[in-house]
Each structure stands twice: as structure tokens, then as C-alpha cells.
Nucleic acid binder design. Structure first.
Lengths: 189, 189
DNA sequence: GACCGTAGCACTAACGGTTAGCTTTTTGAA
DNA sequence: TTCAAAAAGCTAACCGTTAGTGCTACGGTC
């Protein structure tokens, strides 16, 4: 028992990474819909069942590291200095995340996502999960005193900001504009 | 050509309705996931392909009349009296919609939806569609002068209000609380 | 009333994502 | 070396969905 040390974990992580990399390469090369799970598994030289033991679904192959997203947002709430206001902290984080995914080299991936209904759906429910996590972090902040509904509402609005800004013509300006609205909403609680 | 009047339309509508009713009955009886498409088709005495010619997907069987939703929201925007403010009009409509789907007799259906990941996903992307439609209606209103981003943002917030209030312990109070925030956000534009 | 185009429906067979059941290999520890 | 468990593998299926094809009944036209 104890903690499975070393090699086992590394090998598992390596297998996972190889699957993810292979999948991304094939998807970008031939299109998401044109590449089947069996094809990805064969190219990565693993069994289909192995692939699904590492990733819950085909879509999850594309959003490999979405836990970053969640962690960075909650970190922005729980990790800010005492007496620092909530909304600006979230604004900075969202700004950074939007910039990250509107960067040049991320463009092909997001184009692929936008073109596939399945991937869009998946991202939508991912966002809702993130909003719930963020809402929990906001609700748990002892410096703030707001109802459960207000926490969940602000969390949704913040996630909306990310989603809307990402698609806007001028993402930076959109973040500014939307966060002015969120700030007002927050002060109305 | 012209408009195919009469019997043909009635028969088609009857078939559609029979499929929808049968599906709902089976879903509520045995659970959404436990009932297969082939089963629904057999019970409704139609071919599987016929079922899919009336409904785009299994989930669509549950959200049979979601176009109402979209129409009522855009109507609340475009059909309000001149010089009437936007947000209160939307608030009234959302209030009504929330009440409608938190009514006693709708409870089993919504419990079923909440329990099925597939149905939740479907509803989420439905909401996004509705938000886009609503955003277009707001942007088209000549009395209002707001950026495209502001329109889309307010539309999202309004749809969020519906979604959050529906799940809240006290839906009426939640609508009030969230719309106070939306009102503030709107005035900040 | 006979005729024709088409809408609606049926049937089969398949495709692609996903899972269950079971066996084999690899790994860490005794 | 030996053993238990984790990881990976294989087969075979399930389920939602679609393509291909043909039949039937309806609505409009002559």
C-alpha cells in the first residue's frame, strides 16, 4: 500500500500525456469530427479502454488541463491580500485568462472548438462547473458577507465575462466593459 | 405546391405529439437513462427514423416546446410599450417563467432533468441559444443605445437569473435579488 | 375521376462514442 | 521470489444517430 511512489505514477502520466498529445495533433490535422477514438488510440498505441481510463470522454481530450482554470479563479479569491476588494482581483485573473486563450498560438485550437457543437457543449458545462466552484469560494470568504444567491450570481457573471470577452472583437476592451457592469452589480448587493 | 393544408399536417402533428407523450411517460416512469430510443419508438408505434425526423435528438423529446421560451423573452423586449424601461419588463417575464417551471406539477420533470447529465448539458446550450436571441433583440431596440458587448452581457445575465432562480430555495426572492444586481449593471453601461 | 409529385414513414444496416467483463502485464512491496 | 494491486489490453456489445432505399398516402392538377 502506502503511496505508490515513482515509476508507476510517472508512467501513467506519460501515457496520459502521449494520448492527449496524439489526440490534439490528429484533431488539428484532420478536424475533430474526422478523427475517431479508435484512431487516436491506435496512433497513441494504447487500447481504447485505456484511453477512456485516462479521459472521461472524447471532448475531455481537448480540454485536458481545465483544472488550471478552476484553480486560478478560486486562487484569485482565496489568495488575495486581506482587505483587497474581490471584483478587481477577479478582473485581473479573467483578463489574464482571456489573453491566454486569445493568443496567436491558441487560435487553431479555439477555431476547432468553435466549429464543433460537441466541443462547444462540453465547454459550456465546464464553465458552469467552474462557476459553481467559484461561487463556493466567494461564499466561503469571511471578509465578504453576501447571500448564497448573490455569490452564485456574481460567479456566473464572472464566468460570462470570460466567455463573452473571448469571443469579442476586442477582448481587452470587452473585459473592461463587462467588469464595469459586474462591479455595479456587486455593489448593489 | 402551395401550403399543404389539412389532413397531412394534422397527421404529422399527431404523430409528433404521440411520440413526445409516449417518451415523457416512459421517461418519468422508468427514468431518462433507462429508456432507449428504440423503446420509445416501439411504444409510440413508429420507426426510429420517424422519431428522429420529428426530434433532432433524444434530449429534444424532453424540451419539446422550448421555442415558447425564446419567443416570450424577445416579445418582452420588442413588445413593450414605448418608453417602458427594459429591465423591469424582462424581470416580469423571467418571474413568470420561473414560476411556471417551479410549479408543483412540473417538479418531476425538472427532477428528471437535474438528475441526467445529458439533459443538463442540453438545457445549458439551449440557454445559450436563448441568450443570443435575446441579445439580438436588445441590440435591435432603437430606443436603447448600447454596444454589442453590453447587449450580449445583459442577455446572459438575464438568462442566468432564470437558471439561478429556478434552482434557488425561494425562487421569487432570488429573482428580486438578482434583478437588483442586473438593474445596477444595466445602469453602469 | 385518373395522375403525379412529394411528404411522411418504414426498414435495414451501419457508424462512432462508450462501457462491461475478463485476461494479461507491470510494478511496488514483503 | 512471491504476491496483490494497478494499469493496460481485448472482445463484444449497447446506445444514439444517420445514410440509403423504397413504399404509401395525401394534395393539387389535368
Amino acid at each position: 500500500m502506502t503511496v505508490p511512489s515513482g515509476r508507476r505514477e510517472r508512467k501513467k502520466a506519460a501515457t496520459r500525456q502521449k494520448i492527449a498529445d496524439t489526440a490534439m495533433r490528429l484533431f488539428l490535422e484532420h478536424g475533430y469530427d474526422a478523427v475517431g477514438i479508435r484512431e487516436v488510440a491506435a496512433e497513441a498505441d494504447v487500447a481504447v479502454t485505456t484511453l477512456f481510463s485516462h479521459f472521461a470522454s472524447k471532448e475531455a481530450l481537448v480540454f485536458e488541463q481545465d483544472e488550471d482554470f478552476e484553480q486560478r479563479l478560486t486562487q484569485a479569491v482565496t489568495g488575495r491580500a486581506p482587505n483587497q476588494p474581490l471584483i478587481p482581483a477577479l478582473r485581473r485573473e479573467i483578463q489574464a485568462l482571456v489573453r491566454h486563450c486569445t493568443a496567436e498560438d491558441a487560435a487553431p485550437v479555439w477555431r476547432m472548438i468553435d466549429e464543433s457543437p460537441a466541443l462547444r457543449k462540453y465547454e459550456e458545462s465546464m464553465r458552469l462547473r467552474h462557476a459553481e466552484t467559484l461561487a463556493a469560494a466567494i461564499a466561503a470568504d469571511s471578509e465578504l458577507s453576501q447571500t448564497a444567491t448573490a455569490s452564485r450570481t456574481i460567479a456566473r457573471f464572472v464566468i460570462d465575462a470570460y466567455s463573452l470577452a473571448r469571443e469579442a472583437a476586442d477582448p481587452d476592451a470587452a473585459v473592461d466593459e463587462i467588469f464595469r457592469m459586474i462591479e455595479a452589480a456587486w455593489e448593489a448587493t
